[in-house]
């Protein structure tokens, strides 16, 4: 698993209300429509201009706030290939994995990447290459990686139940 994409860089504590405003949480149910509002209250250009496999890079505590999974879903359906941050908020971390959206937690890399540059991430090897060099990051725990590889938690659960039933 590896991807290459253009960077959208943001700061610390990017919260779920600016990623996907609370006022839409019960009115927008189609993931494609969610994507049109991704990062709406932080960067109005983002949803219009983001390309498939672009990479979001941020500071500390990305995704803090609400448990709303749409914050991960809207980014996934907007085409975001991965998110790199110094750290992630706990529930957002889980939601992203459960939506099949890969995350890289790497302080050094996140601090050294600039907006607009092209970066490449290899998830198996735990390597991130950017202008300033190659950075190592610890790979995700096996169980978590398994969910990601199955495309998210729902397909993963489906697979497990089938195996249990012997299908």
């Amino acid at each position: 698993m590896s991807i290459k994409g253009k960077v959208w860089k943001y700061g610390d504590d990017v919260n779920t209300d600016v990623i996907f405003p609370g006022k839409y949480t019960y009115t927008i149910t189609d993931p494609k429509e969610m994507a049109l509002h991704a990062l709406e209250d932080l960067d109005s250009k983002f949803a219009k201009e983001v390309k498939k496999e672009d990479i979001v890079v941020a500071g500390r505590n990305f995704g803090c706030g609400s448990s709303r999974e749409q914050a991960a879903t809207c980014l996934k359906y907007a085409g975001v290939g991965a998110i790199v941050a110094k750290s992630f908020s706990r529930i957002f971390f889980r939601n992203a994995i459960n939506q099949g959206l890969p995350l890289v937690q790497c302080k050094e890399a996140a601090g050294n990447i600039s907006s607009g540059e092209l970066i490449e991430i290899n998830f198996e090897k735990g390597k991130l290459s950017c202008k300033k060099g190659v950075f190592d990051f610890p790979p995700l725990p096996e169980l978590v990686l398994g969910i990601l590889k199955d495309g998210g938690l729902i397909p993963h659960t489906k697979k497990i139940l089938k195996i249990e039933k012997g299908e």
Binding site: N95, N98, Q99, G152, T157
Partner: peptide
Amino acid sequence: TGIGRSEVASIWAT
């Protein structure tokens, strides 16, 4: 603690 929607669905199932 809090979890996401997919996780609740998955707990309902498993």
